[in-house]
Write a protein that binds this DNA or RNA. Structure first.
Lengths: 238, 238
DNA sequence: TCTTGTCCTGCGGGAACCCGCAAATTTTGC
DNA sequence: GCAAAATTTGCGGGTTCCCGCAGGACAAGA
């Protein structure tokens, strides 16, 4: 059994290495990659079936790397090990996990014990192991108390990229008015109307404010934006 | 001689601890804090004169912690040790350095040797030690080839918070038109007019696009936004 | 079949934005 | 002290955004 570690911080990498060896005595080979790109290459070359990987790396982030790995071998078991439980990351991971694949998501702040349990659960028992904090984010989106639906999230991303209503309508094959409707839903869900202090009504540019709130609440983050931007440019703008 | 370490990642904290002991044999006490808030408190209680600290921590980030520390004792020597060289961080640090204070800025990706040199340089020799990558960012802002002036940056932040032109005019005590002028400068500096593919002219909402580009280029980041938002709410909205 | 609910669509108007033009004001350099 | 340069301000317009209103399309359920 072999395990591939994809993590750009050398300290965390060596910590992981040790944790893997301790948790999985049946593992006879631990490989390392220091960014998403080389992670992809190694996974392909070595036919890795067990990967533990960081999100947010330079060169290529964990979500994209995981997507290409899974595209080639959907039965690869991947344990994500991340600093944050931003909604944007959680949503990003959920979007790319293939039907029936087994994966895990644990935070770097978790104890050694939690990490080891996750390693055994995912790699040996084919369980999906998701930390409580992360799970909380996932739930909130389904029970749509405050969470955004996928449709709303996509509109949010397009707006955040700086597209006009018309451009979004074209991309999404909707009428102008429909786009604006979805925007209004978004504005309500994000409490955009709340005013700071006693100022007059027209204090906020709603479109911009919605994105600001989304960033502050970590519904959106920089790496999600980068992904969307790349996608936009590849699709030639329409 | 005592050194205070402020860093939330336990691995990095212990690594720093070791590095400090190795680089500074004359140091007889190494203290640790695990977030910005407790860092402030410890610095005050222990009258720390040598601090090495992470930016981007939960609870209170390094920039705010450093500001309050320097407000109380401007001769404190602070070495910032950060993952990123985002323009937003560099600018944030530069904004709060008191006249004549000595500080350093090294990246976590730097070698052990670089870190040790910085520790000795800042704490023993009262030099300012700034990594090359970080220095590069600073330069670009002064030689305003592409960098933003402070005025432009402030407008950018207000826009990113979601304020309307009118609201910004009021806050900054300018006329509506002046705000719009500054916005136009911003649009040019950020190459907002560049169009993806062959689409029609009106593809972008300039105001939103400017913020998107700023985020992608790391001129702005989430923590700078959080700071600005807090400031906005404190000032009661005007 | 008729109702109910949800979503998409068009119309219209008020507000906000983007910006060219030109005069007034401040800053800068010598 | 004075001219050049940069900033600020007002005016006017075209465009986009925000949204209430109302009509149509489609699915679920009585």
């Amino acid at each position: 059994m072999r395990v591939l570690i994809v993590e750009d911080d050398p300290l965390h990498r060596s910590y992981l290495n040790e944790a893997v060896r301790a948790a999985l005595p049946e593992c006879d080979m631990v490989l390392e990659a220091e960014n998403g790109l080389s992670g992809e290459l190694q996974a392909r070359k070595l036919r890795a079936e067990h990967v533990v990987m960081d999100l947010q790396m330079s060169e290529r982030n964990g979500i994209e790397a995981a997507r290409t790995i899974w595209r080639e071998r959907p039965d690869t078991k991947i344990l994500f090990w991340s600093n944050y439980s931003d909604e944007a990351y959680v949503r990003g991971v959920a979007r790319i996990v293939p039907e029936g694949a087994t994966y895990g998501y644990v935070l770097k702040s978790a104890s050694d014990e939690r990490l080891k349990l996750a390693l055994r659960g995912v790699f040996m028992e084919s369980q999906c192991v998701i930390d409580r904090e992360v799970r909380g984010i996932q739930q909130r989106n389904l029970g749509n108390a405050h969470g955004l639906s996928d449709a709303e999230y996509e509109i949010l991303v397009d707006v955040a990229l700086g597209l006009t209503d018309k451009a979004i309508a074209q991309r999404k094959k909707l009428s102008l008015r429909s786009v604006q409707n979805r925007l209004q839903q978004l504005y309500e869900k994000l409490d955009v109307y709340e005013v700071p202090g006693e100022g007059p009504e027209g204090w906020y540019n709603l479109r911009m404010r919605a994105v600001a709130v989304a960033l502050l609440r970590k519904v959106l983050n920089a790496s999600a934006l980068e992904r969307a931007e790349r996608e936009l440019r590849n699709s030639g703008g329409n």
